[in-house]
Amino acid sequence: MVRRLLSVVAMALVVVIVAHGAVPAAADDYPSRPVTIIAPFPPGGVADLTARPVAAALEKIMKTPVGVVNKTGAAGAVGMQSVAVSKPDGYTLLLALSSISIIPEADKLFGRPPAFTVDQFAPIALISADPTILVVRTESPWKTAKEFIDDAKKRPGQISYSSSGIYGTLHMAMELLSHAAGIKMRHIPTAGAGPAMNAILGGHVDALASGPSVVIPQIKAGKLRALAGWGTQRVAALPDVPAFKELGYPDAEFYIWAGLFAPKGTPEPVLAKLRTSMREVVNDPGFKSAMEKLETPIAFKQGDEFQKFFDADAKRLAEGVKRVGKVEEKK
């Protein structure tokens, strides 16, 4: 028995030692081994669909394999946390969406230890930023955003909307509008952007705020009507739909954005290399056509510009989360 145990352990040791042969490479000749981009949402989601073409283009430009790993769970918190605590060597990157600024705020609201905080990340580049669009069913009485808001004022808490989940991006967009316009609506959270769309198409709720790529096919098919958008400008694909800003609600500004991050503490030369590579990525024809197919215009920002955008967005959302508060306490 003992001899048997020894021989098995010895065999295991041999395996481990042989495996040890490959020594980790030094950090200054970045990138010298495969890079992993973590997409904190399941395949087929916005984060995943943006990460894939980014990875493909980065692979060509940095001449090293770049893979995408979907680390999902807890509305993205699992994947984001895993990057926040990963080794800051530039070999683990994060493709995050707007919710990166919401999750720590929600954690704070409930007094639980935050899974991560936004300052654990070093922004590399903003890739896209789509304003949400307010849609209602075609047969609904509201023809313009003004009619909608006026009616909501008359009947507080009567008009309902679906969202991708409490404190989710689609919820926050509506919350910012409610605050800006001084209205109160009834919130029906669902399990994601898809179910939220089902809820409005099936007539179970009255309104929805969602991304252009999701609502445009339904608008074209005559099922939904767009009333207004949350951007500073109109959306190119919907030139007739005004922005809330034009209508006198400057605080109703919201984007579903996607950006690339590294863990804080990544060496500056590595970040610089990643930033210049990302500049090339957004000009890569393959990447451009991939984003076109997703109907997601590229909105490239990096360095200070991205940081400023990121900070302003995080501040808006933090205030939004605080205003929503805990649902239970309000009733």
């Binding site: 048997r4 145990l5 021989s7 098995v8 065999m11 295991a12 395996v15 481990v16 495996a19």
Partner: peptide, 18 residues
């Protein structure tokens, strides 16, 4: 920690051998 391949080799050795 050890990766898929090493883990599985060691686990199978323990199960089958021991």
């Amino acid at each position: 920690r050890l990766g898929y391949r090493i883990t599985v080799v060691v686990a199978l050795m323990l199960l089958i051998g021991l």
